[in-house]
């Protein structure tokens, strides 16, 4: 009877510990958001969103910053998604499962954890200098692609792994080739998982500043980029720039820009969660 009593206490105790941990996290998040909104919400208006940066805090806008972010995101997506998904498909469906494959798998997972500044240095040497892209959007996008490629590959592989083998068997049993099976059955079934992984990877890319600084994205860019070879800036850089200034007005600008960045990130993540839920409902093995 005694151990039963102890078990119940441990049970209850763990439950309350969990509640405490959850609430702590939520409370801290709430405080942060409230703080930021308090500081920056008033500053947000049409001029702020569409205005070019300026030495004067009250006239400064984030147009070039968020358009730079949009460009970088778009290009990165264009480069990283096909490469990453294709690599994931190859490694998971076509690759032979031997020791080499295991080593590759481990190393890709490791790459996902490498500090982003290392990617910046890599990008600087290869894209900016050797390939002569200069400090352009293209160089930035290529660098960020390298950064999120491992994440997309791993997410793709996990999504493919989650597709039960009985599905592939059923398709092969019908006389489908490997590619037909992948294209018509496996990929559609894994698409939710892959999409979720891609969006999460992109939302990580959105917030990366260090690699872009290294490859030479500028802090002060008074024009909206028009081609992939143009120089650029991104929202996190603009934010970093403003919050490093002592003047209070720039701090407010920074807070406002942070709100915009948070909004974009929340939207992307929210969309990923929505997609994942829809996908899970459709497929119930």
């Amino acid at each position: 009877m005694n151990s039963l009593h102890t078990n119940r206490i441990v049970d209850q105790g763990f439950k309350y510990l969990g509640i405490l941990a959850t609430f702590s996290g939520l409370v801290i998040l709430a405080v942060f958001i409230f703080n930021i909104l308090w500081d920056g919400l008033d500053r947000i208006d049409w001029d702020f969103l569409m205005g070019l940066p300026s030495r004067s805090a009250s006239r400064a806008g984030i147009l070039t910053a968020w358009s730079g972010t949009a460009w970088v995101l778009g290009l990165t997506a264009l480069i990283a998604i096909p490469l990453g998904v294709a690599a994931g498909i190859y490694l998971e469906e076509y690759g032979r499962k031997n020791r080499l494959a295991t080593i590759v798998e481990i190393n890709i997972a490791n790459l996902a954890g490498v500090p982003s500044i290392i990617y910046g240095l890599l990008g600087l040497e290869i894209f900016v200098r050797v390939m002569r892209m200069g400090s352009s959007l293209l160089a930035g996008a290529c660098t960020l692609s390298l950064l999120i490629l491992p994440v997309i590959i791993v997410a793709t592989r996990e999504a493919l792994k989650a597709v039960p083998n009985s599905l592939r068997e059923a398709s092969y049993g019908m006389g489908a080739t490997k590619w037909q099976t992948i294209w018509y059955q496996v990929l559609p079934a894994a698409s939710g998982g892959i999409l979720t992984g891609v969006i999460l990877a992109l939302s990580r890319a959105i917030g990366e500043t260090a690699p872009l600084i290294v490859i030479g994205a500028l802090a002060y860019v008074p024009f909206v980029p028009k081609t992939p070879m143009d120089e650029f800036t991104v929202l996190p850089m603009q934010i970093f720039n403003w919050v490093s200034r002592p003047q209070h007005e720039f701090l407010v600008n920074g807070a406002a820009a942070i709100i915009i960045l948070l909004a974009i990130t929340f939207c992307m993540n929210g969309f990923a969660v929505y997609l994942r839920n829809r996908w899970q409902k459709r497929i119930n093995w």
């Binding site: 599905l167 059923a170 049993g173 059955q185 559609p188 079934a189 459709r282």
Partner: peptide
Amino acid sequence: VFQKPNPFP
């Protein structure tokens, strides 16, 4: 035809 029915989703 397999043991556990495996229709495509």
